[in-house]
Simulated assay, not measured.
Amino acid sequence: MSGPNTSYDPVQVAPLHAEQVEAMVAEALAAFAAATSVAELKEARLAHAAERSPIALANREIGALPPQARKDAGARIGKARGQIGAALKAREAEVSAAELERALVEERVDVTLPLQPHPVGAVHPITGLMALVEDVFVGMGWEVAEGPELEAEWLNFDALNFVPDHPARTLQDTLFVEPADGGLVLRTHTSPVQARTMLHREPPIYVICPGKVYRADEYDATHVPVFHQFEGLVVDRGITLGHLRGTLDHFARAMFGDTRTRIRPHYFPFTEPSAEVDLQCFVCHGDSVGNPDRPCRTCKSEGWIEWGGCGVVNPRVLQACGIDSDVYSGFAFGMGVERTLMFRNDAADMRDMIEGDVRFSRSLVGVAR
């Protein structure tokens, strides 16, 4: 910037002429008006209102004027810069509002459209079925009992009247935890939960025991080494086999709708008498028996499907758990969750239940109805 000019000549400072200043203002206003976006308006601001703009450079020339001319030029440039600043501010408000309105229209999302942009998960059918079983029995006034999956051998076998040389206690059936003589197993059924309940509670006892169990089984369409069971236990005064039949009939109807049960003599160490529970075929309702014209694949035209085991609690089990068998009696039953799920939903391969494919879970989304 040059020093004061004592021999002032207006021609030498042409940018300060009134015509030049008015032209700068007109160019700035036209550029602002032509900008239709925030980005374009930013470029116009840099060109006409920033430090390197013509009006800013003209403002720097004021210092080179003699005192008598500096006042008029300063007023002229200040007025012009004020006009440019006011026009820029007004145009910024207009462009920002227009861009916002355009974005609201272009980016509008119709929340009423029946779309699912991202796939969602589903409750696993086994989890849902176990919750349904619990709801059925809680509705009857029972309680839900749980226990550890790593169990004492005494609770898993001895307390339930399994003799020391019982086949179920061999390595072919039971998964022992090292050391092998440490007395710990991965529970083979949820019956130890029943034993724990009887050891720690006084009758009357009405509990349902759902949970995960472990067996040394092959991995195929109908067997997996880790599966789930639910077992029921009642211990009270005057309990008979008739109470068991009524409970099973009610439970079967809750699981399968219009069906009924039958029991066949069987043997279990922890119940006496013992029985197998069969379901009346919920497909043919027994109409396929002896009728070759109406065969049933579900029950193989036998009219019944094996479901689980049951019986009156063996007095030895009551005594082992500290309950007077002369005063109290009870019944117990147990079914596989996976087997029940296969019956309810016509699932052909048990391996589908543990593969983790969410499509399988979604296909059985109504299991916990």
Rank of each mutant, 00 (worst) to 15 (best):
L104Y: 13
V365Q: 14
Y219A: 14
A30D: 13
F333K: 10
V224S: 13
S361C: 13
R351I: 07
D249N: 14
W154F: 14
P225E: 03
F162M: 03
E43A: 15
H228A: 03
H17V: 00
L171A: 13
R237H: 11
D287W: 00
H118N: 15
L233W: 04
E306Y: 08
V289T: 01
A34R: 12
P167I: 03
S288N: 00
E218T: 11
N156W: 03
V11C: 03
P117N: 09
I323S: 07
M350V: 15
L244F: 02
H166W: 01
L65W: 12
D135S: 14
G303M: 08
L46C: 02
F162V: 01
L175V: 10
H285N: 09
M198N: 08
V185K: 00
G366I: 08
A145G: 04
M342K: 07
F270Y: 15
N5G: 06
V337M: 13
E149G: 11
S37I: 04
F360A: 12
A93H: 06
L65V: 05
E99C: 05
A69I: 01
T188Y: 08
D181Y: 08
H228K: 10
V327D: 11
G356T: 07
S7R: 14
E302N: 15
A39N: 11
G330V: 08
R70H: 09
D158V: 01
L65I: 09
A58K: 06
Q20L: 05
E19W: 00
E51M: 03
R169E: 01
S288F: 02
P119N: 09
F360N: 14
D9H: 09
V111T: 15
R260G: 13
H118Q: 15
G311E: 06
G246C: 08
V163R: 15
V234T: 09
F251R: 00
M24H: 04
V177S: 08
K89P: 10
Y214S: 00
M198K: 02
A254D: 02
P167E: 01
C284I: 00
P117I: 02
G183A: 09
V358H: 05
R262Q: 11
R187K: 12
I205V: 14
R297W: 02
E27S: 12
F227I: 03
I208H: 06
C321D: 01
V38W: 05
G139Y: 10
A86Y: 09
A75F: 14
F162L: 02
E302I: 10
E306R: 12
R294W: 00
G121R: 06
V21T: 11
S2P: 10
F331Q: 06
A332P: 10
G3Q: 13
I305C: 12
G336R: 09
L46T: 12
G238Q: 02
R369A: 15
E61V: 13
D324N: 13
P148M: 00
G82T: 12
G74V: 06
P292H: 05
G232P: 10
A368M: 15
R253M: 13
A35R: 07
A28D: 06
E106F: 07
G78V: 09
M353I: 11
F331C: 07
C296E: 08
Y8L: 01
P167M: 05
M198Y: 05
P10A: 04
A131L: 11
F227Y: 05
A26T: 13
D324V: 01
M335Y: 04
S7Q: 14
S288E: 01
A152E: 13
